[in-house]
Amino acid sequence: MNLQLVVDSLPQLLDGLGLTLQITILSIFLGLVVAVPAALMRLSPNPLLRWPAHGYIFYFRGTPLLVQLFLIYYGGGQFREELDALGLWTYFREAYFCAVLTLTLNTGAYTAEILRGSIQAVPHGEVEAARACGMSGWLLYRRIILPKAFRLALPAYSNEVIFLFQATSLVSIITLLDLTGVARSIVARTFAVYEIYIAAGLIYLACSYGILFVFKRMEKRLMAHLRPEERRQAQKAADPAQENLPV
């Protein structure tokens, strides 16, 4: 074990982590922008809206991220003239742009599916109550369905964010120097294979559990009214006779 080397390369690894986090955050935000309309289209009764969204979600969830990445990064080259004519070639030439685009489309599809499930799980009574109050269309979605759906989606969404964070390691394959990319380049230079990879792995591990912790806190705040223990305790307080009943 060459610990000195690990200490010396720590600043470079943290630089890589910066790019990893940057790509993660950018893709998550853009992914949400894609996911909300995709989920709404997927649930629309109009087949012209439903089927494209269905196809998009099915394709991006059913194929490996690496293929999608190569398809956009290398595959763009096959349409160079067309992209040039549209003025898009300068973007598709950049590994960074391709990486963010792929990760956005990928996480957008997974998030759309999560959102679809949680929109369908919004209790029917709440929707009926809102309709009875005269809300409909966009107002109903904005005030009742989407806020509720986002809360219901939170546990599954936290998993998706962690998966995306880890999936950004693939961008090292298309030459970007994220945490994995930096680790690979240091290994290629020093041959300290396991020291560097283990150090990078520990950084990923710490960040993964950091993200998990943030989401757990958020969940606790947003779902405070649904916490089961407290509710049971409140019930017990209201009706002490129930305490002796077998559960």
Binding site: S169, Y194, Y197, I198, A200, G201, Y204, L205, S208
Partner: peptide, 23 residues
Amino acid sequence: TTVIRGIPELLLILLIFYGTPTL
């Protein structure tokens, strides 16, 4: 389970494939 699920697959593949023989 904690360690494996917190680290990207790609890094684990590199670590196991290149790291284990060297170790």
